[in-house]
Structures are given as C-alpha cells and as structure tokens.
Design a protein around this nucleic acid. Structure first.
Lengths: 271, 271
DNA sequence: CAGTGGTCTAGACCACTAG
DNA sequence: TAGTGGTCTAGACCACTGA
C-alpha cells in the first residue's frame, strides 16, 4: 500500500505541485470524508473485504487514512445509509450482504394483502424454468452496458406462494446477467442453492447488488405467461422491470417480473 | 416557554428524583439529539414555523436547548434526511414544503416512458370531477383513524397528459380527507388553485404531508373507470392506494389512483 | 475486561449567501 | 462583512459485545 494521505480539494491550501487548474465548472469541492468514502467503495469494489465480513475499526481506518476518527465515521455513516455497510455497536462495521434474515429479499416488495395468520408460511417456493447462455440481445447489451456480441445468461423461474391447497404461482421472472462475470452459472447450481439468489451471486461470483431501479406497469397476461401463472389469458398483471447495480453504479442484472396481484401487492414507502 | 434543559435518559447520571425505575423492556436509551429531534418535530406539529419558512439557526437552538451546536446539528441532520427540513448552506434551515420546484410532485412516481423531447410539456392538466362532503365510510374511518360518524371530504379528479393531439387522461384519482381538518375545502377552491394539491393543503389548512405508504396492484378497468380514462373496458390499469401522513405519523389522506401505464410507468428506486 | 461503535462537547476554520 | 450551514479535529465518556 502506498502513501495514504488525503487533502481537501478546496482552494485554501494552495497546491504547490503543478496540478492543472482545469475546473470543469462542476467539481466544486469534495470534503475529506467523501474522499474517504470513495476509497472505501473502491476497496469494496476490489473485494478487499467480503460481504458479511467486518471491515477494520474506525480507529484503524483513521490511522490508515491519516484523518481523525470523526471523519472516518462520517464516511462510514453515509455508506451505512447507502446500505453498503452495516454498523453493529460493540462488534464492528460489516460489509452488507443478502445473507442476513432482515435483508434477505430486500428488493422483493411483494407482500400478501392480509396480515399473515399465525403459522402461515410466507416464504416463496422457487421453480427454475430455464437457464441458458447466449449472445446478449440488443436490449440487454444496452441496459447492462455490454459490448455487442458479449455473452449473457438468461434465467427464467417461477416463485410460488405456499397456500393450504398447495403452492400457487405468484411471480414469473426472466432475468439476464453478463455472461463473462457469471461464467459458471448453471441450472444445477441454481436448483441446488438454498437461500436468496443474490446471496448466491455473492458467494459464487463475488457480485453484491447494492441498489436497483424499477419500472412498474400494468399489462395483460399473454397466453404463454397466463399458462405459467395459472391465470386466464388477458388477466391484469404487474410488470416490474428491474435494473440492479453493484458497487460503483455498475449495472449487473436486468430482471423482468410478472406479478400476480390478486392477493398480493407491491408495497412502497414514499418520503 | 418553560425550562428547556434536557437530560440523557441513560442510567449513568443517577436520577436524584424519585423517578420510577419501570423499564418496559423497550425504551432502552434515547440520546440527547433524539430528544432534540422530537422537540423540533413537536414544534413543527404545533406550526411554530410554517412550511417554506426558516427555523432558528443552529446556534440559537443550541442555546435554547442548552446543548452544543453539534448535538442540534445531528438532530437537524436526521430531520433533513426524513424530509421534514431542508438545509441551505449560507441561508439557513427551512421547513420542507410542497411548493419548491424540485419537490413539487414528490409523491407522484408516474413518468413518461420515452425521454421527453425538447419542448415537450411534461406537466399534467387537472380536471375536477367531484368534491363532496359526507360521513366517512367504514374503510376511510379505519385508515384515517377517525371516529365512526366523522365527516370526510371526497375528491375525484382526472390528471391528463399534454399530447400533440390534445390532453389524454392518464390518472383517475379518488381521495378522502378528514372533514373537520379540511372544513373549507370546496370545488371552487380546488379549481382555482394553481400548483400542487399538497401545497394547497399547507396554505389553506396547515397540513403538510411528510411521507406516504403505497400499495400497488394491476387491475382490469371497470366500465366506469374505462370511460373516464378513455380506454377499453377490462384494460389493465395500475391501482395505487396511498395513505399519506403528516407530522407525528398521523394519517391524513387516503388516495386511490388508477394509472394508465401504456406510455408511462411508475418509477421506483430500491436500496 | 478490552475493544467496538455511539454520543457529546468545544473550538477552529471553510464554503456559501446576502446586504 | 456578518451570519449561516459544513467540515475537521481532539478528547472524554457511554453503550454494547464477547472473551
């Protein structure tokens, strides 16, 4: 590791080095704690610490970066609000992961209408339909920022709710991943995996999903989709198009979900 | 105003007064800055400062509450993240309102599919359908925490997108408000008002909406709704049920929206 | 008990706004 | 230039965890 000192980008400590005064009208001023934050993100991106693992203590990081503990603290605070890190008093600060119970299906906003009765199994069953490798279609190339001709992995699956009368289809998902990053992904691995798919991505491919953007629409079920979801053709379905990002705002997954919302709904909090 | 000193609720400064040691297993510990935060919320609730107005400076508040500036700062920081306050460097801290350009339709997540062309009018026209006063229906009583028999105001309206070929219906809204709080609300006032409805609520009724919860579903258009939205009966529509809250988590508005999502979508960010 | 994050303070200085 | 919020520091002490 090399010199790790940090300087504010402000104009007060006149830069003695011949650094160019090219101000592109935007950069303005980046406080120290944001530079620390960026460094931490880069460390996460470089997988210096794995999801679920602890990062160094605030004191250690302060020493490494040659700043006060308070400055490191502010950087970590922001990363914690961004859900990149998780603070645990008395224990340390940990890299966020999709393994913990609390955040397991963080991006799935579908909930049952009625308050679940005591003992109702709210977990969803999974049923893999397809998992294949191919050249990425144009739309996938565009959204995942691939190069034309790059490989992609397509996965299709059903999520089913556990009802007394048996499992009923609830969500039909169709998702696309960059083929180079997800080289070893196969139907076998997907079927064998217990737990959230995003956790599998962390464990097997070192990819942690940080955030996502979704576009929602109401659509009529095609004959094909209707059959898979066991609803009449033409039924209204909630179409959820998701673009999920990993560290550094890099798009990593394109997911198209069809939700059957007769007894469930998509929950959202506005503020 | 009375004594304004604050004490941590922690156990270290042994309470000399005979305050009961009843620990209900939950309260745990409330840091100073959270108590300050609560006080500020109560001041907002009491309309001590109006939406859009500046609150006292950090130094003034620190003096008033007998704490350091840093503690006030942390309280305000949280209120700013909660969107109750807005900080403006060099100017002061202001009570959030639905008047500013940036946050005008903060709760409306409907956006056009295509990037709007230069000069396209993205604003929506409003067309009031009904505004009437009545005894609140059971569902409204429940959701708005009213008493049975309490009055309510029902408003129905259309939002229309401006297209080259003229305005086309996009959203059909049906909303319910507590009749006592919204005593003077009438069709005339609604029609005359220019700007966001939530801003009208602030100006005329002193009600500021802080946050909201939404439940989304795909439904088939009824004959009636279809006619108003100018779509075929049975068309898939996005049903958005919103419960909006004012200061202190008090439910204040129940809104049911039907979105036509053929050329628009509901945008959501997950993190 | 040592080590972690969490709170609170006091003071210096910077960035931004407006008179 | 005065007043606001924003950053950074250093130090003291508290709350929580686990050995």
């Amino acid at each position: 590791m090399m010199s790790d000192t940090v300087q504010p980008t402000g104009s007060k400590p006149a830069q003695p080095d011949g650094s160019p005064p090219v101000q592109e009208a935007a950069p303005a001023f980046s406080p120290l704690y944001r530079q620390i934050k960026q460094r931490l993100v880069r460390s996460l991106q470089a997988a210096e610490w794995q999801p679920g693992q602890a990062i160094p203590s605030e004191m250690e990081l302060a020493a490494r970066f040659q700043v006060s503990q308070g400055t490191v603290r502010k950087a970590i605070d922001e990363l914690a609000t961004d859900n990149l890190l998780v603070r645990r008093q008395g224990k340390g600060t940990f890299v966020a992961s999709h393994a913990e119970q609390a955040t397991q299906y963080r991006f799935l906003r579908l909930v049952a209408d009625a308050a679940p009765h005591e003992g109702t199994d709210t977990r969803l069953q999974r049923q893999l339909l397809t998992c294949r490798r191919m050249r990425a279609p144009a739309e996938v190339v565009r959204q995942l920022a691939l190069k034309p001709g790059d490989p992609a992995v397509q996965v299709q699956r059903l999520l089913l709710a556990n009802r007394p009368e048996g499992p009923v289809p609830m969500v039909l998902e169709d998702l696309w991943l960059p083929g180079t990053t997800f080289k070893g992904l196969s139907a076998e691995r997907l079927v064998a995996w217990r737990g959230p798919m995003y956790r599998l991505f962390e464990v097997e491919f070192g990819v942690h999903m940080v955030r996502a953007e979704e576009k929602l629409r109401a659509v009529a079920a095609s004959a094909e989709d209707a059959a898979l979801l066991a609803v009449p053709a033409g039924s209204p379905l909630l179409l959820v198009e998701r673009l999920a990002y990993t560290y550094g705002d890099q798009p990593m997954e394109l997911r198209r979900g069809l939700y059957h919302t007769e007894h469930h709904h998509y929950r959202n909090e506005l503020s």
